[in-house]
Every structure is written in structure tokens, then in C-alpha cells.
Computed example of a mutant assay.
Amino acid sequence: MQLLIIDPDQGIQEYYKNTLESHFSGIQVDFASNCSEAERNLQSNDYDLLITESELDRPFFAFLDGVVRIGMPVIVVSRTDSERLAVESIRLGAIDFISKKNLKLGIFTNILARALLDGERWKKIREFSVSMPPYPEVRKHTDIIVGSMQKEKEEKDRLEAAQKLLGGLKNLKEGHAYNILFLYATVKFTEPTFSRMDDWQLQQVLTRWKRILGRIPESYGGQVWIEKKDSLVAAFDGGDTLSALLASMEMNARLYLLSGELPIDRAGLSIALAAGQTVYTSDMGNLVSEALNFSAHLAYREGSYNGIFIPGEIHERLNARSKKYFFREGEAFEGRNIYRFERIA
């Protein structure tokens, strides 16, 4: 038996080699660190199976599609356990999928043995599948899904890189008071949306959206302190108004794009900023902060479906250029003047 494994990680290559040679007698294992090296090996050898990492030096799905089309059974191994990555890999023709964190649970050798035993059957299924290509519309939707996944990955990588360069709240001590600027964001749906999606569907959507939106404040030096069913709360240093404002604008724009991917009315994102003295505790449910309470009230108030809302004292901190994007509302809220930034589609 001949196997080709694509993975740039030298450490995992050693694990593969030791594991496979101890469980399969007479097995020959070759390694490639990138796609070009793998292609050269595939051209000069007749492999029984390919095992590949999902994070390669080329777009993964395009590479996987090309390998599957030449009749090579493929097991996809990923650093993440993304459900969508697993589904799309199988749909493109991978014979199996496993997360790297599950490699050492004892089932990897069983997955490999099954793939080797099922290789010929898989090839016949693939030959039949190739003889019945999908409708063009199926490919169109697949391309949209894959493109969305790639954009999400690129954004995650960018935000992680940015976070390493930025500071943020550090060394906060239990019971001490700090000047904290809160960003309170809550997702809002129209009534027709509630009639089209049940509670479970809405919760799945909200969970994914909050995961994506929560990365944005962190990339600007903030920290997500609280998550609720339809909301999240990020904290910034009390004087870092610009970072909180930029994070708010990026979150607002991001949700606009995310909600456009679903067959529902576009969701709104009501974001309120407020700053003030806060007694810090690691038990976020017991934070003592008038600023946190005010930001929650402002975000949830009736009529705040979509937009960024700030009280007068935060508006005064903005430079002249930033102030031009906010408009004073006609009525005060809880005794404070409110300024509103609303995205116009």
C-alpha cells in the first residue's frame, strides 16, 4: 500500500509515520509539504490513498476537486472541526473527514482501514457520479457557499493578526473600579422573519453571527465580556472611543452582509456605546456599572432597530469629521441627548 500525506507540519508527519507503520505492515508513506510537491508525487507514483490537511498553500476546495477528479480517494484532515468544511469536502468527493484534535482518539487507524478497503467501491461511485454531472445551479450555489467560507477564514486570519498587534484591557483586578467603555450590540429581526424560522433555526443563526461579530471588537483592542441569546457586550478602555466606534461600524456592516445570505428580511443590529466607572469582577453577570445598564437600555429601546447610538458625552469626544456622521435625535433618552449613526443601504 502506498499513501501520500500532505501536511507542512513536521511534527504531525512523524506521528503519521509511526502510527501507520505500527498498524499496517508493508505500508509506504510519502509526505508533501505543499500542493506543487504533492502534484509531482501524484504524477510519478500510483497511490492507494491521499491524506491532506485542509489549510494548504492554494485554495483548498479547488485543489481537492482536482485530485478527486483524477480518481484519487482522499481523507481530509483539518485543524478545525467545522461542520461546513466537513460537508463541503464530502460533497466534493472526499471519502472521509477527521479533525486533527481527534487524530489520537484511536479511530484514525479505523478510518484509514475503512478508506483503503472501500477504495475500489468509492472509485466506481465516483465514475458513476462523473457520468451524471450536477445541474449548473448546483455548482453556482456550491461556489457561493465555498466563497463565503473562504471570506470568513480570511477575515478570521486578519482579525487574529490584528489582535496580536493591538493592546486592549490588561491586568484588571477584582473589585477595582475602572473607566470602561461598553459596546452593547443586539440583533433584531422583523416579524415576518419570526414566522419563517422557528426558535431552533434562529438560535443557530444567532450563534454563528455572534461568533463572527465577536471577533471584531477584539481586533480593535476590546474584549467580549458578556454573551446573551441575541446580544453581546464588548468592553474597551474608557478613553478608546475611536476603536469602539470603528468596531461598531464594522460589526454593523458585517451583519448587513451576513443577513443578506439568508432568505429573510435583513436583520438589524442595534449598537449602543456608553462609558463610565465599572467595578470589575470576573463574574461578568455581577458587574456593577451604570454605563453597562445604560448601553443595554439604549440598544434595546423601542425604535432602535438598526444603527449605532451614542450619548452626548461620547459625541463630544469625537473629532469634527466623525461628528458629521452622527445626527442628534429629537428626544432625550433617560435624560441624555442621543446621537445616531444609521447605515443606509
Score class of each variant (00 low, 15 high):
35 C>K: 09
106 G>N: 03
335 G>P: 11
212 I>W: 01
207 T>P: 01
76 V>F: 03
257 L>C: 07
191 E>Q: 13
144 I>V: 13
176 H>Q: 13
118 D>H: 13
71 G>R: 08
334 E>H: 09
292 L>G: 03
117 L>N: 14
329 E>Y: 01
117 L>K: 14
91 R>P: 02
51 I>V: 15
313 E>A: 02
172 L>M: 14
314 I>Q: 03
20 L>C: 09
55 E>I: 10
289 S>C: 11
90 I>E: 06
163 Q>E: 13
299 A>Y: 06
28 Q>F: 06
298 L>H: 08
240 D>K: 12
296 A>R: 12
213 L>S: 04
111 I>F: 00
56 L>V: 07
332 A>G: 03
5 I>R: 08
240 D>R: 13
230 D>R: 09
78 S>Q: 07
227 E>H: 02
265 D>A: 09
105 L>D: 15
142 T>L: 10
339 Y>K: 02
330 G>E: 14
234 A>E: 06
91 R>E: 13
91 R>Q: 14
127 E>G: 00
106 G>P: 09
248 S>I: 08
80 T>K: 10
238 G>R: 04
273 L>E: 07
71 G>V: 09
2 Q>R: 15
17 K>N: 12
182 F>H: 04
243 S>D: 11
13 Q>A: 11
45 N>M: 02
200 W>L: 10
12 I>V: 12
84 R>V: 11
55 E>P: 00
88 E>I: 06
291 A>S: 13
38 A>R: 06
62 A>N: 14
305 Y>C: 00
301 R>Q: 13
235 A>C: 13
73 P>S: 10
149 M>R: 07
300 Y>M: 08
344 I>F: 02
78 S>D: 15
332 A>Q: 14
330 G>H: 08
86 A>G: 12
221 G>H: 04
333 F>A: 04
225 W>N: 10
210 K>Q: 14
128 F>D: 09
89 S>V: 08
99 S>F: 00
55 E>C: 05
200 W>P: 00
34 N>D: 15
306 N>F: 03
234 A>L: 06
19 T>L: 15
162 A>F: 10
108 F>S: 04
248 S>W: 02
66 G>M: 05
202 L>Y: 01
299 A>N: 12
153 K>P: 03
48 D>Y: 01
320 A>H: 07
180 I>F: 06
59 P>S: 07
131 S>N: 13
65 D>K: 14
289 S>H: 10
207 T>F: 05
267 A>S: 15
65 D>L: 04
250 E>A: 10
100 K>P: 02
137 E>N: 03
35 C>T: 15
7 D>G: 07
344 I>K: 10
182 F>L: 05
32 A>S: 15
264 I>Q: 05
291 A>N: 05
278 T>N: 11
131 S>E: 11
262 L>S: 01
49 L>E: 06
275 A>T: 12
42 L>W: 00
